[in-house]
Deep mutational scan, measured.
Amino acid sequence: IEKFKLLAEKVEEIVAKNARAEIDYSDAPDEFRDPLMDTLMTDPVRLPSGTVMDRSIILRHLLNSPTDPFNRQMLTESMLEPVPELKEQIQAWMREKQSSDH
């Protein structure tokens, strides 16, 4: 029984630690959010139409349809242009958020 109590305490400790580690990014500025999924972008790319999306989301879309989801023009992965300035701004915002939450 004592071992179970210790195990339960350890589990509670881990759960509390994980809860502290989770950071809420739901208040991200609109320009940091993917327009299709409304999630925080981690690897922004510009489509030929000028729309900026997260790379993982547009690549997932391209698996089903080789088109720009906003104007239905033909689109391939090679046409995606990285946006390193925005990526750095997002990373800086995330770092600031992490340091203010801890």
Score class of each variant (00 low, 15 high):
Ile1Thr: 08
Ile1Arg: 08
Ile1Met: 11
Glu2Ala: 06
Lys3Arg: 06
Lys3Asn: 13
Lys3Thr: 07
Lys5Gln: 07
Lys5Asn: 09
Lys5Glu: 10
Lys5Thr: 07
Leu6His: 09
Leu6Pro: 12
Leu6Ile: 10
Leu6Val: 09
Leu6Arg: 15
Ala8Val: 09
Ala8Thr: 10
Ala8Gly: 11
Ala8Ser: 14
Glu9Val: 06
Glu9Gly: 08
Glu9Gln: 07
Glu9Lys: 08
Glu9Ala: 15
Lys10Arg: 12
Lys10Glu: 13
Lys10Gln: 12
Val11Gly: 10
Glu12Gln: 07
Glu12Gly: 07
Glu12Val: 06
Glu13Val: 05
Glu13Ala: 13
Ile14Ser: 10
Ile14Asn: 10
Ile14Met: 14
Ile14Val: 10
Val15Leu: 11
Val15Glu: 13
Val15Gly: 09
Val15Ala: 13
Ala16Glu: 11
Ala16Pro: 08
Lys17Met: 15
Lys17Asn: 12
Asn18Tyr: 08
Asn18Ser: 09
Asn18Lys: 07
Asn18His: 09
Asn18Thr: 08
Ala19Pro: 10
Ala19Gly: 11
Ala19Thr: 13
Ala19Ser: 07
Arg20Gln: 15
Arg20Leu: 14
Arg20Trp: 14
Ala21Val: 11
Ala21Ser: 11
Ala21Gly: 06
Ala21Pro: 12
Glu22Asp: 08
Glu22Ala: 05
Glu22Val: 11
Glu22Lys: 04
Glu22Gln: 08
Ile23Lys: 14
Ile23Leu: 13
Ile23Val: 09
Asp24Val: 05
Asp24Ala: 07
Asp24His: 07
Asp24Gly: 11
Tyr25Cys: 12
Tyr25Asn: 15
Tyr25Phe: 11
Ser26Ile: 15
Ser26Thr: 13
Ser26Arg: 07
Ser26Gly: 13
Asp27Asn: 11
Asp27Gly: 14
Asp27His: 05
Asp27Tyr: 08
Asp27Ala: 05
Ala28Gly: 14
Ala28Pro: 10
Ala28Asp: 07
Ala28Thr: 14
Pro29Gln: 03
Asp30Val: 07
Glu31Gly: 10
Phe32Tyr: 11
Phe32Leu: 05
Arg33Thr: 04
Arg33Ser: 05
Arg33Gly: 02
Arg33Ile: 05
Asp34Gly: 01
Asp34Ala: 00
Asp34Glu: 02
Pro35Leu: 05
Pro35Thr: 03
Pro35Ala: 02
Leu36Gln: 02
Leu36Pro: 00
Leu36Arg: 01
Leu36Val: 14
Leu36Met: 02
Met37Arg: 02
Met37Thr: 06
Met37Val: 07
Asp38Ala: 05
Asp38Val: 15
Asp38Gly: 03
Asp38Glu: 03
Asp38Tyr: 15
Thr39Ser: 06
Thr39Asn: 05
Thr39Ala: 04
Leu40Val: 14
Leu40Met: 10
Met41Lys: 01
Met41Val: 03
Met41Thr: 00
Thr42Ile: 09
Thr42Asn: 15
Thr42Ala: 13
Thr42Ser: 11
Asp43Val: 03
Asp43His: 05
Asp43Tyr: 04
Asp43Gly: 01
Pro44Ala: 01
Pro44Arg: 00
Val45Met: 03
Val45Ala: 03
Val45Leu: 02
Val45Glu: 00
Val45Gly: 01
Arg46Ser: 12
Arg46Ile: 08
Leu47Val: 15
Leu47Arg: 01
Leu47Pro: 02
Pro48Thr: 03
Pro48Ala: 03
Pro48Leu: 01
Pro48Arg: 03
Ser49Thr: 09
Ser49Tyr: 15
Ser49Phe: 15
Ser49Ala: 15
Ser49Pro: 03
Gly50Ala: 03
Gly50Ser: 05
Gly50Arg: 07
Thr51Ala: 08
Val52Ile: 12
Val52Gly: 01
Met53Ile: 15
Met53Thr: 15
Met53Arg: 01
Met53Val: 15
Asp54His: 03
Asp54Asn: 04
Arg55Leu: 04
Arg55His: 04
Arg55Cys: 02
Arg55Ser: 04
Arg55Pro: 00
Ser56Ala: 09
Ser56Cys: 09
Ser56Tyr: 04
Ser56Phe: 03
Ile58Ser: 02
Ile58Val: 04
Ile58Phe: 01
Ile58Thr: 03
Leu59Met: 15
Leu59Val: 08
Leu59Gln: 09
Arg60Gln: 04
Arg60Trp: 02
His61Leu: 00
His61Pro: 01
His61Asn: 02
His61Gln: 02
Leu62Val: 03
Leu62Gln: 02
Leu62Pro: 01
Leu63Ile: 13
Leu63His: 11
Leu63Val: 12
Asn64Thr: 04
Asn64Ile: 08
Asn64Asp: 04
Asn64Ser: 06
Ser65Cys: 03
Ser65Ala: 04
Ser65Tyr: 05
Pro66Arg: 08
Pro66Ser: 09
Pro66Ala: 13
Thr67Asn: 05
Thr67Ile: 03
Thr67Pro: 00
Asp68Glu: 02
Asp68Asn: 15
Asp68Gly: 00
Pro69Leu: 00
Pro69Thr: 00
Pro69Arg: 00
Phe70Ser: 00
Asn71Tyr: 01
Asn71His: 01
Asn71Lys: 01
Asn71Asp: 03
Asn71Ser: 05
Arg72Cys: 02
Arg72His: 02
Arg72Pro: 01
Arg72Gly: 02
Gln73Leu: 11
Gln73His: 03
Met74Lys: 12
Met74Ile: 10
Met74Leu: 14
Met74Val: 09
Leu75Gln: 01
Leu75Val: 03
Thr76Asn: 08
Thr76Ser: 09
Glu77Ala: 05
Ser78Thr: 07
Ser78Gly: 13
Ser78Asn: 09
Ser78Cys: 13
Met79Lys: 06
Met79Val: 04
Glu81Gly: 06
Glu81Lys: 13
Glu81Val: 14
Glu81Gln: 09
Pro82Arg: 05
Pro82Gln: 06
Pro82Thr: 09
Val83Met: 08
Val83Glu: 11
Pro84Leu: 13
Pro84Arg: 08
Pro84Thr: 10
Glu85Val: 13
Glu85Asp: 11
Leu86Val: 05
Leu86Gln: 04
Lys87Met: 14
Lys87Glu: 08
Lys87Gln: 15
Glu88Gly: 15
Glu88Ala: 13
Glu88Val: 11
Glu88Lys: 08
Gln89His: 07
Gln89Leu: 09
Ile90Ser: 02
Ile90Val: 14
Ile90Leu: 06
Ile90Phe: 03
Ile90Thr: 04
Gln91Arg: 13
Gln91Glu: 14
Ala92Thr: 11
Ala92Gly: 12
Trp93Leu: 04
Trp93Cys: 02
Trp93Arg: 03
Met94Thr: 14
Met94Lys: 12
Met94Arg: 15
Arg95Thr: 14
Arg95Gly: 11
Glu96Lys: 13
Glu96Ala: 11
Lys97Glu: 15
Lys97Thr: 13
Gln98Arg: 15
Gln98Glu: 14
Ser99Ile: 10
Ser99Cys: 08
Ser99Arg: 08
Ser99Gly: 10
Ser100Ile: 14
Ser100Arg: 06
Asp101Asn: 09
Asp101Val: 07
His102Gln: 08
His102Leu: 10
His102Pro: 11
